[in-house]
């Protein structure tokens, strides 16, 4: 039988999917053991048990200096920034995307501008944001918004323009105004696409968040990682990275569920 026609059964499929994860963990354990056999005080590849210990104390014990439980402090700070950035970008994406996609005059005015803006590497203007907005929350949220809003605007504009002309004409023959077409025909149809676009943008959003936190912050997941880097505290960095990965996964899962629940007509999310 050809390889392209061999489909693994359920159990085999699960095993195959788990295999790379297991191999990665195994590889780490072996490398860690080897290093610690040579130097018991090795900091680069701490033992899994030590990582677990540190992770637990990060999540449960208050910091001796500030009295906060660091993991939750960092998580809430980061998630609030991320949510604000994503919310602002999503709203901008919807408003400008719909207008650019539907109204020729606005498309002519804004589409080239948005295209140019989206070419600016956001990290290159981070210093400008720090200078203009100071080192507080605004500049970090602004970086996320500037980073992902142009992409969302272009995507939503594209999706809006892809709505079949027939549907727009049909709405007009039923007497719909431009506003009615935007709110009743275009908006509900691009909302599921917005969720899809947002899912894709969450990766870049995390990148911008961690970059901003690494450079100027007093709490946050990215801040913590870059802070403890100075002490080679891999036992902190590794749980943080795993935690960020888990958060990203859960957000993606949540958005996918939202897509399925809220838009049953739109078919499965990809």
């Amino acid at each position: 039988m050809r390889w392209i026609n061999r489909r693994p059964g359920r159990l085999v499929a699960f095993g195959l999917a788990a295999l790379p994860f297991a191999l990665a963990v195994l590889g780490y354990v072996i490398a860690s053991d080897l290093r610690r056999a040579a130097n018991p005080a090795d900091k680069l590849l701490p033992a899994p048990a030590q990582i677990l210990d540190t992770a637990l104390s990060l999540a449960t014990e208050a910091d001796r200096r500030s009295g906060d439980v660091l993991l939750w402090l960092d998580t809430s700070a980061s998630l609030i920034r991320l949510a604000e950035g994503a919310l602002i970008s999503a709203s901008m994406g919807l408003v400008f995307g719909l207008l650019i996609g539907l109204i020729p005059g606005i498309r002519t005015t804004l589409a080239p501008f948005v295209s140019v803006i989206s070419l600016i590497p956001p990290l290159a203007i981070l210093p400008i944001l720090f200078i203009v907005f100071g080192l507080g929350e605004v500049s970090k949220v602004a970086l996320i918004a500037i980073g992902i809003a142009p992409v969302l605007i272009r995507d939503i504009a594209q999706r809006t323009a892809e709505i079949p002309e027939e549907m727009i004409v049909k709405a007009q023959t039923l007497g719909a105004s431009t506003w009615a077409i935007i709110t009743r025909v275009a908006l509900p149809q691009v909302l599921p696409r917005l969720i899809g676009a947002l899912r894709l943008s969450l990766g870049p959003a995390w990148l911008f968040l961690i970059a901003a936190e690494a450079i100027a912050s007093t709490e946050g997941l990215g801040y913590r990682i870059f802070l403890v880097r100075r002490y080679f505290a891999m036992d902190v960095i590794i749980p943080y990275v795993i935690w960020i990965t888990l958060l990203a996964f859960l957000m993606d899962l949540g958005l996918r569920q939202l897509h399925r629940r809220a838009f049953p007509w739109a078919g499965p999310a990809t």
Partner: peptide
């Protein structure tokens, strides 16, 4: 003018 096209004549989200 009422219109019916070959495709895309109804709103899929309603």
């Amino acid at each position: 003018r009422g219109v019916v096209f070959q495709r895309y004549s109804v709103f899929p989200h309603m």
